[in-house]
Design a protein around this nucleic acid. Structure first.
Lengths: 346, 346
DNA sequence: CTGAAAGCGCTTACAG
DNA sequence: CTGAAAGCGCTTACAG
């Protein structure tokens, strides 16, 4: 590939002049400009971004680390999309990298991006393998270690309030439960994701808290646990039904599990919402296309990402964090055909 | 951040020695090694990959360009996943970048990755905005222009057979139609994606070809067109039903549209498969969770990607393209509850 | 086994 | 307005 030196020779000027012309970083006579552009054209010259970055000591790049294999959900797609959009607006190139779903997988990926001198790194934390609190400490250490700004999405880091943005899982999971109770439901079942995952713990907590608030018993028989997938929801719901425990409503960790649960309910001859009211969480578009439509909780992905990016850019520009907004976001109920009220029942 | 020079000073050796120790690229006395590693440790030194790449004239990186906003589908997630896996295996770092869904959006993204000196670039072509054949020519020109190997997935490039890998859309779309005909169906409707998209044209062609082969009339009233989405499939199917045209089976451009169509059929009081047999295409996992399960055609994503990567690496290593396999892949029928035979009907 | 030097392809004070 | 030179942080012949 042609280098700047090739261009300079062809145009009969110094490389520094070529650089200035291309970057518009000084007043240059029209004649020289023309000569340079002509040479650039003829040689089909394109600057080597690596060399530029090394020299400028910045890459104009934001790194985004996402969990591997999780791109399946509409939620994460939207999130990536919004990151891209924001990066574009700030004139930053977004580099996306997938991390292994393990504590050190994420660290490795973040490091790789830092080693490539991304100006800043955004890390979406997935709680798939979020055993204990190991990650929290690791992440906090990374933030301390790096000169490069790092913002963690989807994980609360008490030591670094300005480096983490998260969704209020407790709140989000509590919304459907509270709604159902107000509609007269008392026996509300819950299907959790594996409880070694923090997100799963928090959502279950939301469920339990509301029950307690309203003085309802938390019946362990109504709580099931399964892997995060359609199939997991299906299995858990089957077990729930086979256990012969009465329930008039079912809330699930997320939409995927609710979709699986719906199938199990139908197979067992239970109709939704007549026999069981059903809730997912995430509000994926597809919920409208089930019979009945599955109710859910929307996640404020756009605001969530926009705020994360604002934080990141503020760090990057050393500008004050004027945005006084909290770093936590919660969603809203989205009702579809899958729920009914028991109040008129007497 | 600490540089190699900092390390060399601290260890009391030359930078070249530090480099050699770190890269294991020469015999070095244990004493010096120890000193270097100690300094590295103390300074928390990490090599600047930018500088390494510039110096080595290679980045050990593969760029992957994917369409923006299309990460929603399980199909594309799997594809990305598989790219990542293959890149990992070859010891390459995979850099993912999203392109605008426009001809020049893709070109820009590819160029950006080349400018960053990716060793090779993989481009997944999305036919969303694939008007006319403009892209084919643009892509072929790019391949000619670049020194960097570029492999295009999901687009046939006649001028560059060794730079393109694609799915046989005609074949894939024909499979359900042929199956249905053998089951006695004669009035088979089809919902297409916008026909300015090449993929959509090809799949429609598959549908038409089979009908012709079996001497069945291609009734234009049975063919509908809509945007690629759940909602699009839903709308198109509603129109189809309202048009009062008889049909006993319906094939859709993809799974999403079939899911939308299923809803429209149910709303109209038509049952699947009793009144209408239904087919999607892509075979997403979720199809199992509808009632009935929606039949589809699986796409051989893994083989498709594996082959693309093999091509790419062969270009990269200047090794002969020993893999004599065709650069085109087709899928297989996956039957679920949504289809029935009319043959025993008499 | 190790060092000094040149080079990768740019940018940017420093002069003029 | 433009050039020569130093520097970004590495690697790699070339010597010894």
């Amino acid at each position: 590939m042609a280098t700047m030196q090739d261009v300079s020779r062809r145009a009969g000027v110094a490389v520094s002049t070529v650089s200035r012309v291309l970057n518009g970083t000084a007043k240059i006579s029209q004649a020289t400009k023309d000569a340079v552009f002509k040479a650039v054209e003829e040689l089909n010259y394109r600057p080597n971004v690596l060399a530029q970055s090394l020299s400028r000591q910045q890459t104009n790049t934001i790194g985004l680390v996402i969990p591997r294999g999780a791109a399946v959900s509409q939620y994460l797609s939207q999130l990536i999309e919004k990151c891209q959009e924001t990066a574009d607006q700030s004139g930053k190139f977004l580099l996306i990298s997938q991390a292994f779903n393990q504590p050190d997988g994420a660290v490795q990926s973040i490091r790789a991006l830092v080693d490539r001198r991304c100006d800043a790194v955004l890390y979406y934390h997935n709680s798939f393998f979020d055993q204990s609190n190991i990650n929290e400490d690791i992440l906090s250490d990374l933030i301390d270690e790096f000169q490069v700004p790092l913002v963690v999405m989807n994980r609360q880091l008490p030591k670094h309030p300005n480096h983490s943005v998260w969704l209020d899982n407790v709140k989000n999971a509590s919304l459907p439960v509270e709604y159902l109770i107000k509609q007269g439901h008392q026996r509300i079942a819950y299907i959790a994701a594996p409880l070694n995952q923090k997100t799963s713990q928090e959502r279950l907590q939301g469920y339990q808290q509301v029950l307690a608030e309203y003085g309802l018993e938390v019946d362990p028989l109504l709580i099931r646990q399964a892997v995060r997938s359609y199939q997991g929801g299906y299995q858990a719901c089957r077990e729930l039904i086979q256990s012969n425990t009465d329930f008039t409503a079912l809330c699930c960790f997320n939409d995927q599990m609710a979709i699986g649960a719906l199938k199990a309910l139908h197979e067992a001859g239970l109709s939704v919402p007549e026999d069981v009211s059903l809730f997912g969480l995430d509000n994926e578009e597809i919920l409208d296309f089930f019979e009945p439509g599955i109710s859910s909780v929307s996640q404020p992905v756009h605001e969530f990402v926009a705020h994360s990016m604002r934080l990141l850019l503020a760090h990057l520009n050393n500008s004050p964090l004027t945005d006084s907004r909290q770093n936590t976001f919660s969603g809203e109920l989205v009702l579809r055909g899958s729920v009914r009220s028991l109040n008129n029942k007497g």
